[in-house]
Design a protein around this nucleic acid. Sequence first.
RNA 1: GUCCCGGUAGCUCAGCUGGAUAGAGCAGCGGACUUCUAAUCCGCCGGUCGGGGGUUCGAAUCCCUCCCGGGACGCCA
Length: 616
Amino acid sequence: MTTPPTTIDPVDTLAARLSDAIRDAFGIDDADPLVGPARNPAFGDFQSNAAMPLGKRLGKNPREVAAAIVEHADLGDLAQPLTTDSIAGPGFINITLRPEALADRLAALDTPALGLPAPEHPETVVVDLCGVNLAKQMHVGHLRSNVIGDAIARVFERLGHTVVRQNHVGDWGLPIAMVTHKLMVESDAGRLDLENLDLATLNRLYREAQMECAADRKGLAAVRRFDLGPKAEAELEEQVSGAEEALADAKDTLVRLQKHDPEVEAVWRRIERTTMRVCLDVCARLNTRVTDDASAGESSYATELAGIVEDLEKRGVAEESDGALVVRVEGIKEPCLIRKRDGGFLYATTDLAAIRRRVQNMGGERLVYCVDARQGLHFRQVFGAAHKAGYTALPDGTTAVLEHAAFGTVLGEDNKPLKTRSGENIKLDDLLDEAVDRAEAAIRARESEHDDPRAIAEAIGIAAIKYADLQTERSKDYVFSFDRMVSFEGNTGPYLLYARARLNRIFDKAREKGIDTEAASAAPIRIEANEEKALALLLLRTPQVYRGVADSLEPHRLCAHLYDLAVAFSRFYDRCPVLGADDDATRASRLRLCAITRRILTDGLDTLGLPLLDRM
RNA sequence: GUCCCGGUAGCUCAGCUGGAUAGAGCAGCGGACUUCUAAUCCGCCGGUCGGGGGUUCGAAUCCCUCCCGGGACGCCA
């Protein structure tokens, strides 16, 4: 990613100065100055750990190395001059910023871009997220793909890159044909009104169709083997023959669908519209930016598959194996199957087509797949195959970067995948409803006055669920707990919203008192109290945090940063009166500090995709 | 069987390219609301970083090995 380095983060400047010092002292210009925030405020504001590895490399005592670095370092007016007293332990170099420098950096951060100017060369990033299936209600499995994928997309947008969201809809193949056929049967029998389809009905018929097409051959074999009686055998024979019939019907329907048979396609289209309408509503409720035109069904690739397979076969990228066509990928034992023995294509084939479109038509330079971790092998195969096929080649000769932003499973409190008591998937809407209900109960228990408690509860409940999902490391499973996320205490979404609401309140009160907040927005910043300093140092780290999230595709880093920020602000709020400050200059400085904090916090919450609340 | 991901405080989780005394939240105990919202703040309690070896001045972090848990492994998507 080509984001210009910031001149705001003191780490960058300190690193450059210490690199100079290392070069001057030792003639080495490739040593990492290893500058970072101080481990402990008692040591200072920043520290460099460069002396230890350098000492090893040069065969010298690290403290002597540190002494030489300190001697050659010129930190100018940024920090207190380094002396031998700056060296601690085995060779840590402790650095303390000058208060004026801290204020200057904050002022530099206080621009519309908040330290993240648009990149000179924006890249195009395609983010695969959501991934709904026709005729199926969204469940917890879709939660993470939406929430994390959207947050990743927003981070790239925030950094000024071009983002294309892609909701890869499962709208094709035999399962869809099964339910389509089932719908036609039900409709013909007068048990279903196609004019008034709803997703719950569709979902039920989908499951029924699955059941009807699943032949219990194992059961039949078992009955015969253990001679469980003619009645049991007859029942299973009937089940198996019925299933075979249903399956044959579904296959026939699939063929008709692929040929654009008007009757079949009309029913399929109804399924599609019904599903997508609900899906996009849920996304809107979740505050994730998934829209109709960001959705591309597997069906949209259907006509490309034969060509792709033929192309790969002709060029020798793919080879035959047991009657199937596969692409062997270096480093992976299992080959990527792209054509079945019966000539049918697989989802890997569709994914290859999607990669080709995303790179070659959409100009994607970086493709991010926010999909369940269990698809890990699949994506390694498909990515490998796509590279081998040359589908990731960009016009400028570079290669698109393909990444699987894998996420873990949502577990219940029993540490098993989250399900209802009866073992079914929990509908996403139901999950959100419960969070919102709990939020509303909490609001009412608090007896504070609100114009619209339900609207506030909606935002708090959504924020609670989303933050809980984003907060932990993406690739790991996490335990879902309403009690924890909706207790609204500690490290939760509502805590962050609350910090922002308090900031808003300060400005509301200021206006009531006739205080000129406009003037304060340009007031000199004076960092005096420890709480002010801690807050200021955190604010300056923000741009680097965004870059780290973009590099790692880990939104939980932004969560952690915003939480740290909210904690630092809460401490400041507790101990540093703003409107009641001792003098006008302090008040103006603190108001400005609040203004910057509010903007950073608002920006961060928005980038995570959390709903905002002005008051709560 | 092969491969992938995990194992950190009673619970849920952080811990950035190896760095100073391993950090939060919740739960428990004790404090702080005449002053900008107490959904807050402060203090206390709590850990053989799964076990064992190794590399290193230094290991939760890197290497080896074992144990435990989850997941994925050719014609479903």
